[in-house]
Simulated assay, not measured.
Amino acid sequence: MPQPWIRSPRYDGLLILAPPFLALLVVLGLPASYRHSAAMPLLAWVALVVLIDVAHVYGTLFQTYFDPVRRRQRCTLLWVVPMACYAAGVALHSLGGLVFWRALAYLAVFHFIRQQYGFLRIYSRHDAPAPGRWLATALIYYATIYPLLYWHFSPGRNFNWFVEGDFIQIDWPLGRTIATVLYGGLITAYAARESWRWWRTRTFNVPRNLLLGGTLVSWYVGIVLFNGDLVFTLLNVVSHGIPYLALVWAGGPKPSQATPAPRRGAWAGRYGLAVFIGAVVLFAFLEEGLWDGLVWREHGAVFGWFQHLPTIASPAQLMWLVPLLALPQSTHYVLDGFIWRRQK
């Protein structure tokens, strides 16, 4: 059967489907001390958090504000979303810093889950209607929801999403058991359905099944199997950020075929890839520098110049500043719910 690639087997395979498996290989090679601890080497933090996690957020710019056609088509949306996100952020932070971070963490989780579902829709777009097709959707959602349930039903972990305490956690062993049984049952049902389909039709959707396998691996190993900040960040960030940037660069699939959409704007020329990567990395460095200089003061060795900025500690000032610094993330989470929608 023809496979529903976004760009090509090599492109999709290396940049969209392989990252969780490659991250797993790195995890398996880590010293045992990093698999169940909060230790995070500085270079790993820079590579994962700054150069991938924060940088991928700015990929949205190339599908919105930096694209002259989409900028005209979605003018109202591109103005309203950041203003609404900032107003909501200030309102939430006025109720307490943890309230703000908790709301942002759950919004981020929703965005991460929906990205996996979005890729599933892309890679399932050529599948003919057949009994049990819903199992793929159920599994891609539960492959992410189950580890989150396990996290919520566990005592304190050695990692968090943004800040300590941003997830609500209750130590409930029975809840973990029930969630695990459902997880195993859903995987078994999906595997049986795919085996039956292969036996009847000799068809196998390679990218869809690699996507599901990578999602299962990255979320289960990073959250359930191990309890280490480096492991969680490595699997979570690499599996999410690199495929997103690859999708942005490819332009996404057209509604009816795998040919990528044309690129427009400054990144469409000869040096487009250098502009693209350079811009997202520069924006990420500047953002994290402002965070470190004004709020966190944790990585002065990386953001030396930013240490000359005044540290903001006043709750009244933080109420206005923190939602502003987080605006690229919150806008990215919301806009991504609109910019990839297609009629089919």
Rank of each mutant, 00 (worst) to 15 (best):
I168T: 12
I312V: 15
A316F: 08
F204G: 02
L78Q: 03
E194K: 12
V109K: 09
F306C: 09
L325V: 00
A279D: 01
S124V: 01
H299A: 14
P41C: 08
I170W: 15
G213T: 04
T331I: 07
G251L: 05
R202F: 08
P2I: 03
L24D: 07
L149Y: 00
L135E: 10
G214W: 10
V302M: 09
G185Q: 02
R342I: 09
P328M: 02
P20S: 09
F159L: 06
T180L: 14
A105W: 08
A128N: 12
A39L: 13
L186I: 00
R74S: 00
H299M: 12
D166K: 04
F162L: 14
Y244W: 05
V49Y: 14
D53V: 04
G265F: 09
T144S: 14
T76N: 10
D171I: 03
W198C: 07
R264T: 13
Q257N: 15
G175D: 05
L61H: 04
G97Q: 15
P31N: 15
L318Q: 10
L107W: 06
P260L: 10
L148E: 04
L309E: 05
I16A: 07
L14Y: 02
G118Q: 03
L211R: 02
A261K: 15
P253T: 08
Y141H: 12
Y190F: 10
A274Q: 08
I113K: 06
R193G: 00
R200G: 07
L335M: 06
L120I: 03
D292R: 00
F153D: 07
S154N: 08
P31G: 10
F162D: 10
Y11F: 15
W296A: 11
G184L: 11
G265V: 06
I6D: 07
N158S: 03
F167Q: 10
G272I: 04
L17D: 09
P19Q: 03
L230Y: 04
Q3R: 00
H56T: 00
L77D: 04
Q116N: 04
L77H: 01
W196I: 00
F100S: 06
Y123S: 04
W199Y: 07
P315A: 14
Q3T: 01
A108G: 13
P173E: 05
L225T: 10
A44C: 13
V221Y: 11
L24T: 13
A39F: 04
V57S: 06
Y271S: 11
T188I: 13
F167C: 03
A38K: 03
W296N: 10
